[in-house]
């Protein structure tokens, strides 16, 4: 029997993997992918809560679709930034992106 907790644990694992990717990866594209994973783990949570706590309503699912739309926009902007940085600096290593430092 798959319960709500199973979904939540899956989402938590997925979030941690995404977070690790966002924090620890050097490649900017990989960082963006990590962020996508985190967003998707949130989506799993939303849909799971919707299914188990208030099955008659669609709030969670609609909210998940909203998150997917925002994530798509965010990735578009993010990739455009990465592309431009690469053109300027010939690198996508986030450790090198520290020009605003003192």
């Amino acid at each position: 029997m798959i319960t709500l907790n199973h979904y939540l644990i899956l989402a938590a694992i997925l979030f941690c993997i995404g977070f690790y990717g966002a924090i620890a990866k050097k490649n900017a594209v990989a960082v963006l992918m990590g962020i996508e994973l985190m967003l998707n783990s949130v989506n799993i949570n939303l849909v799971a809560f919707n299914r188990f706590l208030s099955p008659g309503e669609m709030t969670g699912q609609i909210f998940a679709i909203m998150v997917i739309v925002v994530a798509a926009a965010e990735v578009a902007v993010g990739l455009a930034l990465v592309l431009n940085i690469y053109r300027q600096r010939l690198t996508t290593d986030v450790n090198d992106l520290d020009w605003l430092k003192w």
């Binding site: 966002a22 924090i23 986030v94 450790n95 520290d98 605003l100 430092k101 003192w102």
Partner: peptide, 17 residues
């Protein structure tokens, strides 16, 4: 205090998290 500002965005992300 300025040494807190590493300029590394992943650091900031970690702190925010």
């Amino acid at each position: 205090m300025r040494f807190i500002q590493t300029g590394n965005m992943q650091n900031y992300a970690l702190v925010i998290f």
